[in-house]
Amino acid sequence: MSEDGLHNTLKVQRAMRNLTQADLAAQAGVTRKSVNGIETGRMVPSVILALKLARALGVTVDTIFTLEGADHRPAPAD
C-alpha cells in the first residue's frame, strides 16, 4: 500500500493474465519501472495512467485501485 493509503491489486490482476511487467507496460505505453513503482506502492499513478492500465487489463479502475478504509458506495447526489 502506498503512503497515501492507495491499495492496488495490479500485481494480482497482471498475474491472472500471465503478463510480465514489461508486457503490461508496453500495452499501457509506459516503462516497466512505472508498473513496478505502482505495484510496490512507491508511486501513485495519475488518473490517465490508471485508466490506461485498467484498459490494458480489461477491467475498471476501481478493480485495480482502492482507497484504504474508503466507503465504496457512490457519493450521494446533491
Partner: peptide, 15 residues
Amino acid sequence: APEVKAILSDEWRRT
C-alpha cells in the same frame, strides 16, 4: 519510436 516515447513520457521517471 514507441519505446523511446514511453521512456520520455514515463510517469515514474518524471516523478
